[in-house]
């Protein structure tokens, strides 16, 4: 009974996830001419992911996603920066954009494809990546799960560090106002 309901719920969320992402893509592509753009699309997409995580749980989502959203964000930043730096190769100023006008496309009608779009996609990736990363990290950590998986811990922390979800050190736990032991 409950299994069926949760199955329906999950299916509905998946459908919603798909729809929101399509909408986000649409927002991203039309951004140059109508309200929208990489940032808005990225946030919409991130919210869709959050919805999905609510439905299937953070652990499960991590299994499904299989990649580190932080890397996606870094890739997005790299994409934006490389898009900007590409004109340097031709001796043009940093961030100069070039474009082409495409007409007669299905669904979208006419489309303006330019390096500005690549830049905007970079923005999109950064926003999706970091919004997901911080939401998931905080969500896991506040639920007393390990915020970072082992591989991420290797990448984002020093070997001598420990996750904060554990009990804090003795000194802080007792009373923050006690002087540190090295003085007494």
């Amino acid at each position: 009974m409950s299994g069926l309901r949760s199955y329906i719920f999950k299916a509905a969320v998946r459908l919603l996830f798909f729809l929101v992402n399509v909408f986000a893509l649409y927002l991203l592509l039309r951004g140059h001419n109508l309200p929208g753009g990489g940032f808005i699309a990225g946030l919409a997409s991130a919210i869709a992911l959050v919805l999905l995580s609510l439905a299937i749980g953070l652990e499960e989502l991590h299994r499904v996603m299989r990649f580190d959203p932080m890397r996606m964000a870094a890739a997005g930043l790299a994409m934006a920066a490389v898009t900007g730096a590409a004109p340097l190769l031709f001796g043009r100023p940093f961030l100069e954009h070039f474009d082409a006008h495409l007409t007669g496309l299905p669904l979208l009608g006419e489309l303006h494809v330019g390096t500005a779009l690549a830049f905007d996609i970079g923005v999109f990736l950064v926003v999706v990546g970091i919004a997901c990363k911080i939401m998931f990290a905080l969500g896991k950590s506040t639920q007393r799960l390990r915020a970072l998986v082992a591989e991420e811990e290797r990448r984002y922390s020093a070997p001598v560090e420990q996750p904060i979800e554990e009990e804090p050190p003795i000194r802080a736990a007792t009373n923050p106002s006690t002087p540190s032991p090295h003085v007494s």
Binding site: K133, I134, A137, S141, S157, A158, E161, Q162, P163, I164
Partner: peptide, 13 residues
Amino acid sequence: ASLGCLGLLMRYK
């Protein structure tokens, strides 16, 4: 900012 957030999630103990 998100790197900073990740840094906050680990404690130098």
